[in-house]
Design a protein around this nucleic acid. Structure first.
Length: 136
DNA sequence: GCCAACGTTGGC
DNA sequence: GCCAACGTTGGC
């Protein structure tokens, strides 16, 4: 079981949009590091859904329901996508500013590699963000 | 293979 | 809207 964090601009595709759809392709990734992470995902892995730009917060948990396959939005063979489904919306969003302020999360790629859109996180980081989401 | 120029992302 | 960070491209 691996843990991930995936970014989306909520104006383009939000967690609530995913809930409405029930399941969606996570396509359009055109970055090699992010692509490698997509390829490493296993069915059943969990990922945080992060809203960039307007919210800058982790909103919910999603589950990988289909492993990497050719991205249908391009003919270039090197790009892949996965399918995801909503798992659970966090009780409270966990904001980037609070993640940055938490020393336990200082090593997160979210903080260190600001532009990476699909990243791996540790179970400790996953658990810590879950803990933060339970209090307002 | 180096590196400057350029484009994109995303926080502020 | 600006700009820093950084990945990618292309000339040499």
């Amino acid at each position: 079981m691996n843990y991930w964090l995936m970014k989306s601009e909520p104006d383009v595709f939000s967690y609530d949009d995913l809930v409405k759809k029930g399941r969606e392709h996570w396509d359009g990734v055109r970055n090699y590091t992010a692509r490698n992470n997509l390829r490493a995902m296993k069915k059943g892995d969990l990922a945080f859904f992060y809203h960039s730009n307007t919210d800058k917060a982790v909103i919910g948990i999603i589950e990988i329901v289909k492993e990497a396959y050719q991205d249908p939005t391009t003919n270039e063979e090197q790009w892949v996508c996965v399918d995801v489904a909503p798992k659970e919306k966090l009780k409270h969003p966990v904001y980037l500013i609070d993640i940055k302020a938490n020393p336990k999360l200082a090593e997160m790629k979210l903080v260190k590699l600001g532009r990476l859109s699909v990243m791996d996180i540790t179970k400790k980081e996953f658990d810590e963000i879950m803990r933060m989401s339970r209090k307002s």
